[in-house]
């Protein structure tokens, strides 16, 4: 069992490294990627490599102005309601990330003209983890996170 985990872990880190290398080598052009579905970002195994693939950088600044509404305890990890509200102007994208999911990037909302800094959706979470919201506004990236406890097995935690 321990060995199995080690195997998966190794595989995961190799894959993430490969994505990172591809990005830095300029094989993937992150700015154009948003036009099409960014498979590298959604397949990335870590938060940083997902952000690298999606935005071209993972230099995020934590901000207490972003508010995440999600349950403290989610009894059903398959349906976790998450709302993100951000007060910034000129918001480009709002991304929702479940930190400990196998592929952390869950959704990226690209806001057009006139859109407010608010999105709400429902996501799947594999286990207890932080839900991270990354807001890109005016060329800078801000983030906030909130822990959601996921109880598996339906004992109601």
């Amino acid at each position: 069992m321990i060995n199995m985990k080690r195997r998966t872990f190794l595989k995961g880190s190799v894959a993430a490294g490969a994505v990172g290398a591809a990005v830095s080598a300029g094989l993937l052009t992150p700015r154009v990627v948003l036009a099409a579905w960014p498979s590298a970002a959604f397949e990335a195994k870590s938060v940083d490599s997902a952000l690298d693939a999606l935005m071209g950088s993972h230099a995020v600044e934590s901000s207490d102005k972003i508010s995440i509404r999600a349950p403290d305890i989610a009894e059903n990890g398959a349906v976790v309601p998450v709302s993100v509200t951000a007060p910034m102007s000129n918001i480009d994208t709002i991304s929702i990330i479940a930190e400990k999911n196998a592929a952390p990037l869950t959704a990226a909302f690209k806001l057009g003209k006139g859109a407010e800094g608010y999105v709400s959706t429902r996501i799947k979470m594999g286990k207890t983890s932080n839900v991270i919201a990354v807001v890109k506004a005016g060329g800078k990236m801000y983030s906030a996170s909130k822990e959601v406890k996921v109880t598996i097995g339906g004992c109601g935690g």
């Binding site: 479940a98 592929a103 909302f109 959706t121 799947k124």
Partner: peptide, 10 residues
């Protein structure tokens, strides 16, 4: 608005 989703949306 354009939403890009992965398989982890419910």
């Amino acid at each position: 608005m354009t939403a890009l989703w992965g398989p982890a949306v419910s």
